[in-house]
Amino acid sequence: MKLVIGDKNYSSWSMRPWVLMKHFGIPFEEVCIEMYEAGSKAAMFAHSPSGKVPSLSADDGLAVWDSLAIAETLAERFPQHALWPRDPVARGHARSISAEMHSGFGEMRTNMWMNIRASFAGKGATPGALADIARIDAIWSECVEQYGGPFLFGEFSIADAMYAPVVMRFNTWEPALSEAAAAYARRVTESPAVHAWIEDARRERHAIAVYDTCA
């Protein structure tokens, strides 16, 4: 399989399937397209009809784009791995909070973008962003308490991959979190697949000026 992604420092959507596949040992070829350059959009369209990353393809004709669609496809193709929780009630819960992440938290996304190499502590804290953060904090805290940790549903799953870029944002912007949510964020940051992504992001040399500064 081939996974097409954007810059690891900036592309939150790309991070999700990459971390998921690395965590579960699913082999893939990585293709990275530097974003916001003259040929970036054309290069992305060559791999995906959406003209966006990530996208996943395979020699058998598989062509999937969008991070959550890729995650669902991987869960179908690799049932030997518990990409979703095995328990159907927990699985429904995990799908719900993953979809909430996928479609929501617009204020936080807009005001606290992903830039792993940056430090914007205390900035971006608009009322809307803070409301989004409070909801995310509640999701993390409640899931860890209900399912016993160390991750949202016990073992690392699609739900954790969906929220991994939020952890990256929180590491950069440093909003106030509850003790439970902060501890969860540290565990995600220290997990091997996420750590590998962070190290790769730090080694990148491509820079996107608009995301490297914050008033």
Rank of each mutant, 00 (worst) to 15 (best):
K2M: 04
L3Q: 01
D7T: 01
D7H: 05
K8V: 04
N9P: 01
S12E: 00
S14P: 09
S14H: 08
R16G: 02
W18D: 02
V19Q: 13
M21I: 01
F24V: 06
G25L: 11
P27E: 10
P27I: 10
F28I: 04
F28K: 02
F28S: 06
F28A: 02
V31E: 07
A38G: 01
G39Q: 05
S40F: 10
S40A: 15
A43Q: 12
M44I: 10
F45S: 07
P49L: 06
S50R: 13
K52M: 14
K52V: 01
P54K: 02
A58W: 03
D60A: 05
G61N: 09
L62Y: 04
V64G: 06
D66G: 00
L68H: 09
E72G: 02
A75M: 01
H81D: 11
A82D: 14
D87L: 12
R91M: 13
G92K: 11
S96M: 15
H102Q: 12
H102N: 07
G104R: 05
G104I: 07
G106P: 03
G106S: 14
E107S: 15
R109I: 05
M112K: 06
M112Q: 12
W113D: 03
I116F: 08
I116W: 09
F120D: 03
F120Q: 02
K123G: 08
K123N: 07
G124R: 06
A125W: 01
G128A: 07
A131Y: 10
D132S: 06
D132Q: 08
I133W: 07
A134V: 09
R135S: 13
I136C: 12
D137N: 12
I139E: 02
W140Q: 08
S141Q: 11
S141R: 10
E142C: 09
E142Y: 04
C143P: 00
C143M: 13
C143L: 13
E145K: 15
E145I: 11
Y147V: 02
G148P: 06
F151C: 08
L152V: 09
F153C: 11
G154C: 06
E155A: 15
Y163N: 03
A164E: 05
A164H: 05
M168C: 14
M168G: 15
N171I: 11
T172F: 01
T172D: 00
T172V: 12
W173L: 08
W173E: 08
E174F: 00
P175Y: 10
A176F: 00
E179D: 14
A180I: 14
Y184G: 01
Y184N: 06
A185G: 13
R186T: 14
E190S: 14
S191K: 01
A193R: 12
V194N: 10
H195P: 00
W197Q: 04
A207M: 11
V210C: 14
Y211D: 12
Y211C: 12
T213Y: 13
